[in-house]
Computed example of a mutant assay.
Amino acid sequence: MIRPMRRLTLRWSLTVLLACGLAGAGEQQANAKRPADRPERLEMTVRASGTAAMFSSLKISSPRLASRIAAAERRPAERVDCYTDLEVSVWETDDRKTVYRLERTGRLWDEAASKLLWLPPDASERLLRYAEALRSRHYGKLMDWNEARSIVGRKSLFTIVDLESGLSFRVQRRAGSDHADVQPVSREDSATMKRIYGDKWSWERRAIVVAKDGARIAASMNGMPHGGDGIPDNGFKGHFCVHFLGSTSHRSDTPDPAHQLMVHKAGGDLRRYFDSASPAALASSFVEALNLKDGDMLSLIWTGASAEETAMLSRLLERLDSIYYARAGKLAQDDDGDKLSASVDLPVLVRLDGRGTLRAKLRFELARSSPQSPWRIVGLGSDHSSLIP
């Protein structure tokens, strides 16, 4: 895992109560037989990124499941395929716990010890059911713009929840046919939105959940007032854009890659999105993840990065102020055909350590095992040694 940034203080949480039907018929018997020193407290937590202040948690009181985790065989493992947004905490005592990652087959990964816990199939299946339920509550639903536009109709009011900070504010859709043009409802709403962007307006895309009438829809927003106004005295001169799955900008019939990346992040669907992405889309997503300093997202994009390449990226992220794709307009998409290898050159504008803007080019080498297999990054270089040595 590439984790260059310190986790922020938690500001918001959604606690999901354990449903009685999930607890299992054997819980009371297991509880009666439980030794006094056997751990029984578990908690599953989901975050959109490793630095997100917003999280959702599921508290699990299950002595039987905890005992199976405690008794599980631990095998050394170098690489595992884990959910990057999930953690499972098991308390040994009231003040001591072990934190695991959930592997996609339902095993638990002890990252500190580099060991994989081999659980019985029923325990693994149960953890995966909990994970699916928790992630569905945390993220928004991926909904095509043609459907979403009927829920957030013109002049409708709805709430935007930022998946990183957990802050929320109210908006009204004023216009827009290819996406939603919206405005904060009040000065307080505008102030909250500005806090989300570090107290300065920005074109940066952010993953959000749009909440209206019980619906929670995955979306993306930018944070720059522009264009027409319509709500007086709300402290926001103009409108900003909210994009949904498949929505486009006013000047293009192709979805904006950065907005679509954030839509899939808001839907908890990044892995599938990257597995179906073209080489050009993977490359542009990589640059966006670098700019966001999102180590979890980078790990999902460059799944085969070696320890040396991971260390190189961590050093780059420590020095990086910002990085952007240097060409305006849509990113050219590849006609992949049956090719098994590809190269993508991306011109970028980079700021390192507060210095001036550097123009450079990133070169991505990609490969796949068959025309039906996902593209994977197998090499990364640059024409500027201060960026990629």
Rank of each mutant, 00 (worst) to 15 (best):
R104D: 08
R79H: 04
E78V: 13
D95C: 03
D85I: 09
V90G: 06
R79G: 06
W109T: 10
E78S: 04
V90T: 13
A77S: 12
L86P: 05
A77D: 04
E87W: 08
L86T: 03
E103I: 02
S89E: 14
D95T: 15
V90M: 15
D95G: 03
T98W: 10
A113N: 15
W91T: 06
L108T: 01
W109Y: 12
E103C: 00
S89D: 15
Y83R: 01
R79V: 14
S89L: 11
R101K: 13
E78D: 15
C82M: 08
L102S: 07
C82L: 02
L108G: 07
P76W: 10
D95K: 13
Y100V: 00
C82I: 12
D110K: 09
A112P: 00
D85V: 14
A112K: 11
D110S: 03
T93C: 11
W109C: 03
V99R: 14
L108R: 11
D95Y: 11
R107E: 02
D110Q: 02
P76C: 00
V80D: 04
K97G: 00
R79S: 04
R96H: 07
W91R: 06
E92M: 14
R101I: 08
L102K: 07
C82H: 05
L102G: 03
S89A: 15
V88H: 03
R107K: 07
R104H: 15
R79Q: 08
T84L: 13
V88N: 09
V99I: 09
D95M: 09
R107M: 07
G106P: 00
T84N: 09
T105Y: 05
R101L: 14
T105E: 11
T93M: 04
A77T: 09
L102A: 13
A113C: 11
R96N: 02
E87F: 11
V99Y: 00
R107G: 03
A113K: 15
Y83C: 04
T93I: 07
T105R: 14
W91G: 12
R107L: 02
V88T: 12
A112H: 06
Y100K: 05
R101G: 10
L86F: 09
L86E: 03
T84Y: 13
R96F: 08
